[in-house]
């Protein structure tokens, strides 16, 4: 699939794939991003992959737009021949649902006509593709919430949502990586630190990975939180090529 290139100011170039959200298109975005990261010569500064496009920041004083476009065409060509598919990785995200950790669980349940247990079962019952990371530090755009538990946002956003909160907004679900204001319906909380500026890399996942939410008890939450604070918590990762292992 050939990309369409669009100039975005004097220091950025967009490479756009088809104008829709799909896991297949998104996979191509991340594959191309990883190729460019590897092959990038002088003048390519940073790459921001999103749902269906890549934004490439370059230094026009070191790399002309013409040369950049030629280099990108070549990378795309190589990529097509390589036919490489990245391994699918699934990260286990422990979540304590409901109570003080997810004060809107009851609301989500009653507005969906389900019990709280059913909402938990549905929410934790499938893997969510991480389409992209963006907006704010460590925020991931996840795909594929079951529409049975889709719930509108709060009319008035909360001033303070704790870090690690898991929420629902319409047909989206996601995690607040840092404490912030927010209008999502909160159903639970993870003890994991999904963004840490003092860690390299600051996020424990790469876009293209999947999140799997694992319901845990409040007691387990506290134990894991303590481990995270001490810096010795390991996230369980299932890799389609390397099997399961723990890291970070």
């Amino acid at each position: 699939m050939k990309t369409e290139k669009a100039v975005a100011g004097d220091r950025a170039l967009f490479l756009n794939f088809a104008n829709r959200i799909s896991p297949q298109i998104n996979r191509k975005v991340h594959l191309l991003a990883s190729f460019i990261e590897k092959e990038k010569g002088e003048g390519i500064l940073e790459i921001v992959p999103t749902y269906r496009s890549l934004c490439i920041y370059y230094d026009p004083l070191r790399l002309t737009l013409k040369d950049l476009k030629t280099a990108l065409d070549q990378i795309e060509h190589e990529l097509e021949r390589a036919k490489k598919t990245p391994p699918a990785r699934v990260l286990e995200i422990p979540v304590v649902y409901g109570g003080e950790y997810g004060s809107d669980l009851g609301f989500v349940a009653s507005s969906s006509g389900l019990s709280e247990e059913e909402v938990i079962q549905i929410h934790s019952g499938r893997d969510y593709l991480i389409y992209m990371c963006g907006f704010s530090p460590g925020f991931s755009y996840l795909g594929g919430l079951d529409e049975r538990i889709a719930t509108p946002r709060l009319k008035t956003p909360r001033v303070r949502v704790p870090a690690g909160s898991v929420g629902i907004a319409e047909e989206q679900t996601g995690i607040y990586p840092l404490e912030s204001a927010g209008g999502w319906r909160l159903i639970g909380r993870t003890p994991l630190k999904l963004f840490d500026p003092y860690r390299d890399p600051p996020i424990p996942f790469v876009p293209g990975d999947y999140f799997r939410f694992i319901p845990i008890s409040e007691e387990e939450y506290q134990k894991k939180l303590e481990k995270v604070r001490r810096g010795d918590y390991k996230i369980l990762i299932h890799d389609s090529q390397q099997g399961s292992f723990s890291c970070i």
Binding site: G9, T50, S53, G134, F135
Partner: peptide
């Protein structure tokens, strides 16, 4: 639009 990157000055 489908969410994408926001360069500085956009």
């Amino acid at each position: 639009i489908i969410t994408d990157a926001i360069p500085q000055g956009a």
